[in-house]
Design a binder for these strands. Structure first.
Lengths: 334, 334
DNA sequence: CTCCGCGCGACAAACGTTTTAACAGGATGT
DNA sequence: ACATCCTGTTAAAACGTTTGTCGCGCGGAG
């Protein structure tokens, strides 16, 4: 438990504590001989800098907070991996907060972040209230929105264009010769669901079709189970569309299962496309066409923006970056 | 940026800084009137305690480190969710470290943890070297192993019994009338693969069968793609076992796809069981029988042990907790 | 030979909290 | 009346860094 401090290092190297600090933080300021001597002392004693003391004195830490809505969702997991990698490369630690969609938990996480005096926060807000984030900024904590459009141009944000993605999916189905088109979606409150639908409608209009013909099947959840229920609903109706666009892959996989079990052939009878391109999309029996989002990249870039804002507050220009999704064609579509 | 400190609160409430600290840390020590006055001042000024200053003086922080091998793996994601929930309930923050299987990255993460003076570390070690962990303990940082047996009885560990799980899977297949049994596995270096195999052999012995008959198909990775390749390999050989036990669900899903595409019926021609019971196991075309592990619980309990060790170092008794897996029977097995 | 500038380090003052010892002022017991 | 013990509060000393200021010694310019 004999915690070794900068003083011990200084004593052993025969220099002052300030010099040790300089070796740590601005090595170019200290003469070669002294530096190697100090470095040797650091190694010998197994010294590791006390982050808290450093933060206290310097006024800022080398940690960032990451608040996500659901760490169990592969989408956020990939984002988190990108964040962690980039932060780690730049010597920052990541404090993880999982809000589970609960506003209370999100609030609590932000408080923890504030107590730790994180340098900045990456957040996918669970609702539209900008007040909390404003309060963070007042405390000098940078904020970057992830997978959410910027509420104002005074902040950074990264997102993926869901309208384009929706248009890609529907366009692909239309090019495949689809007559009647169905859109299987989740709760209407979810922004992504709305925008993907909007994209699909645009694609229909561009193909000279009436967007109002798009048949919407809305489910209360975006899970595989909900997808299968949607299939049952469609089959009970008796009028199966020629092609189905599902708002995420889990819905699509459930739908696929429901259709195949009922003897409907995919893609011969019905074309099917999902969204997100999760790992399992390519692993299902009939591999699933989907829309790929650069999730890992989303995390990396968001972190890069955040750290730039922290390290160069003066020259930093706020950016709203919109990534473009990709169409991935597999077996489930004609 | 006017950061408000304990002194400002003290001034406004007309007390000394020490009293404010007491209100924060041992409210029972301060008289009711003073306390409410101080609390009001805290609210009015929007004071939030400076975690680093607190850590520096108190000698310990309210953060723990979590080092996992692959945050993209649903298994670890579930564990992380459990950790985050429990830590958050007890007022601890979680610093996330993702080693991606790289020893170097793991090392770097542990260094970050040490710098942040985390109270303790939860780790799924990426290899068997106990040295690093020993060094952490010398620094007064508690360590709990996750999904890894304890190297010695002087530390806590939580894991799931892989031998039992393997026995459950193989036993289920044997009870279904399987004659020839195959075991599709990953790299032999992975401890879990070995132990699950050992369990399967025990089940065979218990059923009066020669364990040597267990046919092993080892793949270099444990992904869906590798599973499909394994299927191709088996089909090329021409001698398909009656039943297949895959060391994880991804392998099993790939295998399922490969078999179905070749016209092999599951479970009529071949029974198939996976391991982990990931979400998608129940959503595949032929839903997958599997072995469920209490992952979320694993994370919660590990955190509980860690915090107990931190908060009651004297009375704390090291524990090695072994969870039992569950057999989940679905459509893929007879 | 003096003076200036410069490179390198030492010194010391913070940073915001926790904690110990000390203390005031009653209440209590003798 | 005095000694004693509470209870509630304060003052001050840490904790381990960072950082601005200052001083020393040396080499080159005047």
């Amino acid at each position: 438990m004999a915690t070794v401090s900068i003083k011990d290092v200084a004593a052993r190297a025969g220099v002052s504590p300030g010099t040790v600090s300089n070796v740590l933080n601005r090595p170019e300021k200290v003469a070669g001989g002294t530096r190697t001597r100090v470095e040797a002392a650091i190694r010998d004693l197994g010294f590791v800098r006390h982050g808290s003391a450093s933060t206290l004195r310097a006024g800022h830490s080398r940690t960032i907070g990451l608040s996500v809505i659901d760490i169990g969702n592969p989408f956020f997991t990939d984002v988190a991996a990108g964040v962690e990698d980039m932060a780690s490369e730049r010597g920052y630690a990541v404090i993880l907060g999982n809000s589970s969609g609960s506003r209370l938990k999100e609030e609590r996480n932000l408080l923890v972040f504030a107590e730790q005096r994180v340098r900045g926060v990456l957040i996918t807000p669970s609702d539209e209230d900008p007040g909390r984030l404003e309060r963070l900024r007042e405390r000098g904590i940078a904020v970057v929105l992830v997978d959410h459009p910027a509420e104002r141009s005074t902040q950074c944000a990264v997102a993926v264009n869901d309208v384009t993605g929706g248009a890609m999916a529907a366009g692909h189905l239309l090019r495949g010769g689809a007559g009647r088109l169905g859109y299987v979606t989740g709760p209407p409150a979810i922004r992504q669901c709305q925008e993907r639908r909007r994209g699909a409608e645009q694609a229909m209009a561009a193909a000279g079709r009436d967007p109002a013909e798009l048949r919407e099947i809305a489910m209360p959840a975006m899970t595989a189970k909900a997808g299968q229920q949607a299939a049952e609903k469609l089959l009970a109706d008796g009028t199966l569309p020629d092609a189905l666009f599902c708002a995420n892959d889990l819905l699509a996989l459930g739908m696929l299962r429901g259709l195949l079990q009922a003897g409907v052939r995919v893609p011969d009878d019905v074309s099917l496309i999902g969204y997100d391109d999760i790992d399992f999309a390519s692993a299902s029996t009939v591999s699933l066409s989907s829309i790929r989002q650069p999730t890992y990249q989303l995390g990396r870039v968001a972190t890069e923006l955040l750290l730039d804002e922290c390290d160069n507050p003066d020259t930093h220009a706020h950016q709203q970056i919109m990534f473009q999704p990709d169409l991935v064609v597999r077996e489930s579509t004609r």
